[in-house]
């Protein structure tokens, strides 16, 4: 892998993708630690894996399918009770702008 350089800008970009607010101190620490962690992975770079298939699932398996049957849904009141805010049967969230997402 191309030796990745972790800069504050990279940290901020990744934090944005991860929807994570980091304080300036956290950004600095993150920058340093990610660099160290990624540096420790350098040995992987040299390893030749051409022709090796990936193992996405540790144990070979085929996903069981579910029959197309309707099961009872959960009581709405109980689900809404766990929400930080709800109104008129809906989960209330900060105003969503059209076209976000």
């Amino acid at each position: 892998m191309a030796a990745p350089t972790i800069t504050i800008d990279v940290v901020r970009h990744v934090a944005k993708l991860a929807a994570l607010s980091l304080s300036p101190t956290e950004e600095e620490t993150m920058c340093r630690e990610l660099r160290a962690i990624l540096a420790s992975m350098a040995a992987l770079e040299a390893l030749d894996v051409s022709g090796v298939p990936p193992t996405f699932h540790a144990v070979a398996m085929h996903g069981g399918l579910r029959p197309d049957e309707v099961r009872d849904s959960f009581p709405r009141a109980e689900l809404l009770a766990a929400a930080p805010a709800h109104e008129a049967g809906g989960f209330a969230v900060p105003k969503v702008m059209d076209g976000e997402g």
Binding site: V11, A18, L20, S21, L22, S23, E26, M30
Partner: peptide, 18 residues
Amino acid sequence: RGAGFGPEVKRRIMLGTY
């Protein structure tokens, strides 16, 4: 997420996202 997660969780989320 910034307030809810501790440092190790943030570190791994950042590493994994990257």
